[in-house]
Protein backbone atom coordinates (compact mmCIF):
# COMPACT_ATOMS: atom_id res chain seq x y z
CA UNK A 1 0.00 0.00 0.00
CA UNK A 2 1.10 3.44 -0.79
CA UNK A 3 1.91 6.00 1.83
CA UNK A 4 -0.53 8.86 1.40
CA UNK A 5 -0.32 12.02 3.44
CA UNK A 6 -3.51 13.55 4.82
CA UNK A 7 -4.70 16.43 2.77
CA UNK A 8 -5.76 19.27 4.98
CA UNK A 9 -7.74 21.25 2.43
CA UNK A 10 -10.70 20.28 0.31
CA UNK A 11 -10.12 17.81 -2.49
CA UNK A 12 -10.40 18.77 -6.15
CA UNK A 13 -10.37 15.18 -7.37
CA UNK A 14 -10.29 11.79 -5.78
CA UNK A 15 -8.88 8.79 -7.55
CA UNK A 16 -10.20 5.51 -6.13
CA UNK A 17 -8.99 2.06 -7.12
CA UNK A 18 -8.37 3.45 -10.58
CA UNK A 19 -7.28 1.12 -13.34
CA UNK A 20 -6.41 1.85 -16.92
CA UNK A 21 -5.76 -0.58 -19.77
CA UNK A 22 -4.61 0.52 -23.22
CA UNK A 23 -6.34 -0.93 -26.28
CA UNK A 24 -4.97 -4.36 -27.06
CA UNK A 25 -2.86 -4.59 -23.88
CA UNK A 26 -3.24 -7.62 -21.61
CA UNK A 27 -2.05 -5.94 -18.45
CA UNK A 28 -3.45 -2.71 -17.04
CA UNK A 29 -1.06 0.20 -17.33
CA UNK A 30 -2.29 1.62 -14.02
CA UNK A 31 -3.28 -0.76 -11.25
CA UNK A 32 -5.67 -0.03 -8.37
CA UNK A 33 -4.48 3.48 -7.83
CA UNK A 34 -5.95 5.60 -5.05
CA UNK A 35 -4.95 9.22 -4.62
CA UNK A 36 -6.51 12.49 -3.49
CA UNK A 37 -5.78 15.73 -5.33
CA UNK A 38 -5.90 18.84 -3.16
CA UNK A 39 -7.92 21.87 -4.20
CA UNK A 40 -6.10 25.12 -5.01
CA UNK A 41 -2.79 23.38 -4.75
CA UNK A 42 -0.24 22.06 -7.15
CA UNK A 43 0.23 18.34 -7.21
CA UNK A 44 3.24 17.08 -9.11
CA UNK A 45 3.43 13.56 -10.49
CA UNK A 46 6.93 12.18 -10.80
CA UNK A 47 8.40 8.81 -11.66
CA UNK A 48 10.52 7.06 -14.28
CA UNK A 49 9.22 7.01 -17.85
CA UNK A 50 6.54 4.40 -18.36
CA UNK A 51 5.37 4.62 -14.75
CA UNK A 52 1.92 5.74 -15.87
CA UNK A 53 1.99 9.37 -14.75
CA UNK A 54 0.96 10.79 -18.12
CA UNK A 55 -1.59 8.01 -18.56
CA UNK A 56 -3.15 9.00 -15.23
CA UNK A 57 -3.12 12.67 -16.15
CA UNK A 58 -4.87 12.02 -19.47
CA UNK A 59 -7.58 10.11 -17.63
CA UNK A 60 -8.70 13.20 -15.71
CA UNK A 61 -10.11 14.77 -18.88
CA UNK A 62 -10.79 11.44 -20.58
CA UNK A 63 -8.31 12.15 -23.39
CA UNK A 64 -7.96 8.40 -23.83
CA UNK A 65 -11.48 8.29 -25.21
CA UNK A 66 -10.20 9.79 -28.46
CA UNK A 67 -8.64 6.46 -29.30
CA UNK A 68 -10.90 3.43 -29.35
CA UNK A 69 -10.40 0.38 -27.18
CA UNK A 70 -8.93 1.96 -24.04
CA UNK A 71 -10.53 0.81 -20.78
CA UNK A 72 -10.99 2.56 -17.43
CA UNK A 73 -11.73 0.90 -14.11
CA UNK A 74 -12.44 2.18 -10.61
CA UNK A 75 -13.46 5.76 -9.99
CA UNK A 76 -12.28 9.32 -10.35
CA UNK A 77 -14.51 11.60 -8.31
CA UNK A 78 -14.93 15.19 -9.40
CA UNK A 79 -17.66 17.40 -7.95
CA UNK A 80 -19.21 14.38 -6.25
CA UNK A 81 -19.56 12.28 -9.34
CA UNK A 82 -17.53 9.57 -11.02
CA UNK A 83 -16.26 11.08 -14.26
CA UNK A 84 -15.47 7.66 -15.70
CA UNK A 85 -19.14 6.87 -16.21
CA UNK A 86 -20.29 6.14 -19.73
CA UNK A 87 -22.87 8.93 -19.51
CA UNK A 88 -20.28 11.57 -18.60
CA UNK A 89 -20.59 14.71 -20.77
CA UNK A 90 -17.03 14.86 -22.08
CA UNK A 91 -17.43 18.27 -23.65
CA UNK A 92 -18.45 19.82 -20.34
CA UNK A 93 -15.83 17.84 -18.43
CA UNK A 94 -13.08 19.14 -20.68
CA UNK A 95 -14.14 22.73 -20.19
CA UNK A 96 -13.96 22.16 -16.42
CA UNK A 97 -10.64 20.32 -16.55
CA UNK A 98 -8.22 21.98 -18.96
CA UNK A 99 -4.94 20.67 -20.30
CA UNK A 100 -1.54 21.98 -21.37
CA UNK A 101 0.65 19.71 -23.50
CA UNK A 102 4.35 18.79 -23.79
CA UNK A 103 4.76 21.05 -26.77
CA UNK A 104 3.12 24.41 -27.42
CA UNK A 105 0.03 23.76 -29.55
CA UNK A 106 -0.90 27.10 -31.07
CA UNK A 107 -3.82 26.56 -33.47
CA UNK A 108 -3.39 27.72 -37.07
CA UNK A 109 -5.20 31.01 -36.40
CA UNK A 110 -4.53 34.42 -34.87
CA UNK A 111 -3.46 34.97 -31.26
CA UNK A 112 -6.86 36.41 -30.44
CA UNK A 113 -8.75 33.55 -32.07
CA UNK A 114 -6.62 31.03 -30.23
CA UNK A 115 -7.61 32.41 -26.85
CA UNK A 116 -11.20 33.01 -27.92
CA UNK A 117 -11.51 29.47 -29.28
CA UNK A 118 -12.81 27.77 -26.15
CA UNK A 119 -15.11 30.69 -25.37
CA UNK A 120 -16.60 30.61 -28.84
CA UNK A 121 -17.15 26.87 -28.55
CA UNK A 122 -19.27 27.65 -25.52
CA UNK A 123 -21.30 30.06 -27.58
CA UNK A 124 -19.89 33.38 -26.45
CA UNK A 125 -20.50 35.75 -29.35
CA UNK A 126 -20.62 39.18 -27.75
CA UNK A 127 -17.62 41.07 -29.13
CA UNK A 128 -16.83 43.23 -26.13
CA UNK A 129 -17.17 40.36 -23.72
CA UNK A 130 -14.93 38.19 -25.89
CA UNK A 131 -12.43 41.04 -26.06
CA UNK A 132 -12.46 41.42 -22.28
CA UNK A 133 -12.15 37.74 -21.53
CA UNK A 134 -9.33 37.27 -24.04
CA UNK A 135 -7.47 40.26 -22.62
CA UNK A 136 -7.89 39.01 -19.08
CA UNK A 137 -6.73 35.51 -19.97
CA UNK A 138 -3.68 36.90 -21.73
CA UNK A 139 -2.90 39.08 -18.72
CA UNK A 140 -3.34 36.18 -16.34
CA UNK A 141 -0.99 34.13 -18.48
CA UNK A 142 1.53 37.00 -18.42
CA UNK A 143 1.68 37.39 -22.17
CA UNK A 144 -0.55 40.43 -22.65
CA UNK A 145 2.38 42.83 -22.94
CA UNK A 146 3.99 40.87 -25.75
CA UNK A 147 0.76 40.01 -27.54
CA UNK A 148 -1.41 43.10 -27.27
CA UNK A 149 -0.09 44.77 -30.39
CA UNK A 150 -0.38 41.71 -32.56
CA UNK A 151 -3.58 40.02 -31.50
CA UNK A 152 -4.58 39.53 -35.13
CA UNK A 153 -1.27 37.98 -36.15
CA UNK A 154 -0.76 34.28 -36.67
CA UNK A 155 -0.07 32.64 -33.33
CA UNK A 156 2.68 30.54 -34.87
CA UNK A 157 4.81 33.68 -35.13
CA UNK A 158 5.34 33.66 -31.35
CA UNK A 159 8.36 32.04 -29.72
CA UNK A 160 8.04 28.64 -28.06
CA UNK A 161 7.76 30.03 -24.55
CA UNK A 162 5.24 32.67 -25.67
CA UNK A 163 3.20 30.00 -27.46
CA UNK A 164 3.08 27.87 -24.32
CA UNK A 165 1.84 30.86 -22.33
CA UNK A 166 -0.70 31.48 -25.06
CA UNK A 167 -1.89 27.89 -24.62
CA UNK A 168 -2.20 28.52 -20.90
CA UNK A 169 -4.19 31.67 -21.63
CA UNK A 170 -6.40 29.66 -23.96
CA UNK A 171 -6.98 27.06 -21.28
CA UNK A 172 -7.75 29.49 -18.45
CA UNK A 173 -9.99 31.69 -20.61
CA UNK A 174 -12.80 29.16 -20.17
CA UNK A 175 -12.23 29.26 -16.38
CA UNK A 176 -11.64 25.61 -15.64
CA UNK A 177 -11.47 24.31 -12.09
CA UNK A 178 -8.58 21.99 -12.70
CA UNK A 179 -5.61 22.40 -15.04
CA UNK A 180 -3.55 19.45 -16.17
CA UNK A 181 0.03 20.12 -17.24
CA UNK A 182 1.73 17.35 -19.19
CA UNK A 183 5.47 18.13 -19.00
CA UNK A 184 4.73 21.70 -20.10
CA UNK A 185 8.35 22.83 -20.26
CA UNK A 186 9.97 19.81 -21.89
CA UNK A 187 10.27 21.64 -25.22
CA UNK A 188 11.38 24.98 -23.77
CA UNK A 189 14.65 26.71 -22.95
CA UNK A 190 15.58 27.40 -19.29
CA UNK A 191 14.43 31.04 -19.31
CA UNK A 192 11.01 30.23 -20.77
CA UNK A 193 10.79 27.33 -18.34
CA UNK A 194 11.31 29.64 -15.38
CA UNK A 195 8.57 31.92 -16.75
CA UNK A 196 6.10 29.05 -17.07
CA UNK A 197 6.93 27.77 -13.58
CA UNK A 198 6.29 31.20 -12.09
CA UNK A 199 2.99 31.34 -13.92
CA UNK A 200 1.94 27.90 -12.70
CA UNK A 201 2.58 28.92 -9.08
CA UNK A 202 0.57 32.09 -9.65
CA UNK A 203 -2.37 30.17 -11.14
CA UNK A 204 -2.74 28.01 -8.04
CA UNK A 205 -4.84 30.75 -6.46
CA UNK A 206 -7.61 30.14 -8.98
CA UNK A 207 -7.35 26.54 -10.13
CA UNK A 208 -6.22 23.20 -8.86
CA UNK A 209 -3.19 22.04 -10.77
CA UNK A 210 -1.76 18.65 -11.55
CA UNK A 211 1.61 18.68 -13.28
CA UNK A 212 3.45 15.73 -14.73
CA UNK A 213 7.16 16.33 -14.90
CA UNK A 214 10.26 14.27 -15.46
CA UNK A 215 12.26 16.98 -13.80
CA UNK A 216 12.44 16.48 -10.02
CA UNK A 217 13.78 19.96 -9.41
CA UNK A 218 10.76 21.35 -11.17
CA UNK A 219 8.44 19.31 -8.96
CA UNK A 220 10.31 20.52 -5.88
CA UNK A 221 10.20 24.15 -7.04
CA UNK A 222 6.55 24.48 -7.93
CA UNK A 223 4.42 21.89 -6.18
CA UNK A 224 2.68 21.63 -2.81
CA UNK A 225 2.20 17.88 -3.03
CA UNK A 226 4.20 15.33 -4.94
CA UNK A 227 3.13 11.88 -5.93
CA UNK A 228 5.77 9.33 -6.88
CA UNK A 229 4.57 6.64 -9.27
CA UNK A 230 6.32 3.45 -10.22
CA UNK A 231 5.16 0.65 -12.56
CA UNK A 232 1.59 1.89 -12.69
CA UNK A 233 1.19 2.31 -8.97
CA UNK A 234 1.36 5.23 -6.58
CA UNK A 235 4.24 4.64 -4.20
CA UNK A 236 3.98 7.74 -2.11
CA UNK A 237 2.05 10.98 -1.98
CA UNK A 238 3.43 13.58 0.40
CA UNK A 239 3.89 17.27 1.01
CA UNK A 240 6.57 18.23 -1.45
CA UNK A 241 9.03 19.56 1.15
CA UNK A 242 8.66 16.36 3.18
CA UNK A 243 8.73 13.94 0.29
CA UNK A 244 11.99 15.27 -1.05
CA UNK A 245 13.67 15.56 2.36
CA UNK A 246 12.30 12.67 4.34
CA UNK A 247 10.61 10.21 2.03
CA UNK A 248 8.67 7.52 3.84
CA UNK A 249 9.15 4.83 1.23
CA UNK A 250 12.47 3.25 0.36
CA UNK A 251 11.60 3.26 -3.35
CA UNK A 252 10.91 7.00 -3.27
CA UNK A 253 14.22 7.63 -1.60
CA UNK A 254 16.08 5.57 -4.16
CA UNK A 255 14.40 7.45 -6.98
CA UNK A 256 14.96 10.96 -5.67
CA UNK A 257 18.56 10.23 -4.83
CA UNK A 258 19.07 9.05 -8.38
CA UNK A 259 19.66 5.36 -7.71
CA UNK A 260 17.42 4.58 -10.70
CA UNK A 261 15.37 6.48 -13.15
Amino acid sequence: MATIVDIATEKALEVKNFEFTYAGADEPNIKKLTMPIAKHSITALIGPSGCGKTTLLRSFNRMHDLYPGNKYGGEILFKDRNILGSKEDLIKLRTQIGMIFQKPTAFPMSIFDNVAYGLRLQGLKNKTELQDRVEKALQDAAIWQEAKDRLRHDANGLSGGQQQRLCIARAIAVEPEVLLFDEPTSALDPISTAGIEELVVELRKRVSIIIVTHNMQQAARVSDYTGFMYLGELVELGRTEELFVTPKEKLTEEYITGKFG
Binding site: N61, M63, L66, L90, I91, K92, R94, T95, G98, M99, F101, Q102, K103, T105, F107, P108, M109, Y117, G118, L121, Q122, C167, R170, A171, V174
Partner: peptide, 25 residues
Protein backbone atom coordinates in the same frame (compact mmCIF):
# COMPACT_ATOMS: atom_id res chain seq x y z
CA UNK B 1 -0.17 16.62 -35.33
CA UNK B 2 -2.21 14.58 -32.83
CA UNK B 3 -1.23 16.91 -30.03
CA UNK B 4 -2.85 19.84 -31.88
CA UNK B 5 -6.10 17.93 -32.28
CA UNK B 6 -5.98 16.83 -28.64
CA UNK B 7 -5.56 20.46 -27.59
CA UNK B 8 -8.83 21.34 -29.28
CA UNK B 9 -10.61 18.33 -27.80
CA UNK B 10 -9.21 19.36 -24.41
CA UNK B 11 -11.11 22.64 -24.75
CA UNK B 12 -14.36 20.77 -25.27
CA UNK B 13 -14.40 20.59 -29.05
CA UNK B 14 -16.43 17.99 -30.93
CA UNK B 15 -14.97 15.99 -33.82
CA UNK B 16 -16.48 18.36 -36.33
CA UNK B 17 -15.11 21.38 -34.41
CA UNK B 18 -11.68 19.83 -34.56
CA UNK B 19 -12.01 18.98 -38.26
CA UNK B 20 -13.23 22.41 -39.33
CA UNK B 21 -11.18 24.58 -36.96
CA UNK B 22 -7.93 22.66 -36.69
CA UNK B 23 -7.45 19.97 -39.31
CA UNK B 24 -8.81 21.77 -42.36
CA UNK B 25 -7.01 25.08 -41.64
Amino acid sequence: PDILKESAYALGGTKWDVVKDIIIP
